[in-house]
């Protein structure tokens, strides 16, 4: 089941969309980079950690700001077109 539980501002949406894109990019880059290229590999590992943290911080910050509803086993989703936040439960 999926229901709308809130909405973020376009600026907030842009922030998470950019992090979402970066995380995907890093994950795909990780598939082709090897430890042979030590400098770039380290940069990648570092970036993945930082991006993951910033990503989670965004959700924590927004959840605190908007007091979104949550449920055990459910997850939140954002629609990048509408800035709407959904609670998805099984």
């Amino acid at each position: 089941m999926k229901k709308i539980i809130g909405k973020v501002t376009p600026e907030e949406k842009q922030e998470i969309q950019s992090l979402f894109e970066r995380r995907n990019g890093l994950n795909e880059l990780a598939r082709i980079l090897t430890a042979d290229n030590a400098e770039l590999y380290e940069k990648l590992v570092r970036d993945m950690g930082e991006t993951g943290t910033r990503f989670q911080n965004w959700w924590d910050r927004m959840a605190a700001k908007y007091q979104w509803e949550s449920s055990d086993g459910g997850n939140w989703e954002i629609n990048f077109d509408t800035c709407e936040i959904y609670l998805v439960t099984k």
């Binding site: 969309q17 979402f20 459910g74 997850n75 939140w76 989703e77 954002i78 629609n79 990048f80 077109d81």
Partner: peptide, 10 residues
């Protein structure tokens, strides 16, 4: 909680 994003149109 698992968090997912949907991305229609780009």
């Amino acid at each position: 909680m698992e968090i997912k994003e949907t991305d229609n149109g780009w």
